[in-house]
Amino acid sequence: MSTEQPPEQPAESLRELAAQEAVLKLLAERVAAAQKDVKARTQRALDAAAQRDGVERIVATLPTGQQVATISLRKGETGPVVTDEEALARWLRRTWPDEEWTETRIVRTVRPWKLAELVAEMKAANAAKVADKATGEVFDVPGVVIKPTRSRTHALTWRKGGEAATAEAWRTGALAHQLAAITAGGAE
């Protein structure tokens, strides 16, 4: 058995680590801000292109012409949103007094499991209306409106080898123009 110790690695300088952390924090903050900005501008451009020409996706291409990703439009969703739970609870109590949809506290509220059922029914109908299962009567539901529940957005999907190609283009400086705003000087 050998008692020989492996050669000691030089310890990293605390100053070097602190400097690296500061640089990476600044870079991460600038990248996050730039990404938020470009996502918003991309969304506006995609929305306009979809309305004007029916475009729903676009290819991301490097300066070399290599296609590295696809950006696809995702449609938003519209559905029922409870805006006045107290009005809804009063209506439910009047409409179906024998049902155990509500409970009495200081304020009448709708039981969460029953509210989920109602919202699902209204979402399926895309209307703030529910039908009485026994009579078939359809009711307008107070305290609920149909409105956007998720914004229209888009998603980026990497093509095979796209991430590696983009990283290489960044490493070689081919993306300097696209990254100029992130690396430019100036205080925020």
Rank of each mutant, 00 (worst) to 15 (best):
A34E: 06
Q35D: 14
K36Q: 13
K36W: 10
D37N: 11
A40V: 07
Q43K: 12
A45S: 15
A49Y: 06
A49P: 00
A50S: 09
A50I: 03
Q51A: 11
Q51C: 03
R52N: 10
G54C: 08
V55P: 08
E56Y: 06
E56W: 03
R57W: 03
I58D: 02
V59K: 12
A60K: 04
A60H: 07
T61F: 00
P63A: 04
G65T: 12
Q67L: 08
V68T: 14
A69G: 04
T70Y: 07
T70F: 02
S72A: 11
K75T: 04
G76E: 10
E77A: 09
E77G: 00
T78D: 13
P80E: 07
V81E: 14
V81H: 06
V82H: 01
V82E: 14
T83F: 00
D84V: 13
D84R: 12
E86T: 11
A87P: 00
A87H: 05
L88I: 05
L88W: 01
L92F: 04
L92G: 02
R93Y: 09
R93W: 06
R94L: 12
T95F: 02
W96N: 02
D98F: 06
D98S: 14
E99N: 08
E99D: 10
E99H: 08
E100R: 13
E100C: 03
E100T: 02
T102I: 06
T104R: 07
T104G: 04
T104N: 06
R108E: 05
R111W: 02
R111T: 02
R111G: 01
R111S: 05
P112T: 00
P112E: 14
K114N: 02
K114P: 02
K114T: 04
L115F: 06
A116S: 11
L118E: 05
E121I: 01
A124L: 12
V130A: 07
V130E: 03
A134V: 14
A134S: 13
T135A: 01
T135P: 10
T135D: 04
G136F: 11
G136Y: 13
E137A: 15
F139L: 07
D140S: 13
D140F: 03
G143F: 04
G143A: 04
V145A: 15
V145K: 15
P148T: 04
R150D: 09
R152T: 10
T153G: 01
H154F: 10
A155Q: 13
A155V: 13
L156G: 12
T157Y: 13
R159M: 15
R159K: 15
K160F: 12
K160R: 15
G161V: 07
G162R: 11
T166A: 14
T166Y: 05
A167Y: 09
E168N: 10
E168F: 01
W170A: 15
R171A: 15
T172L: 05
T172G: 04
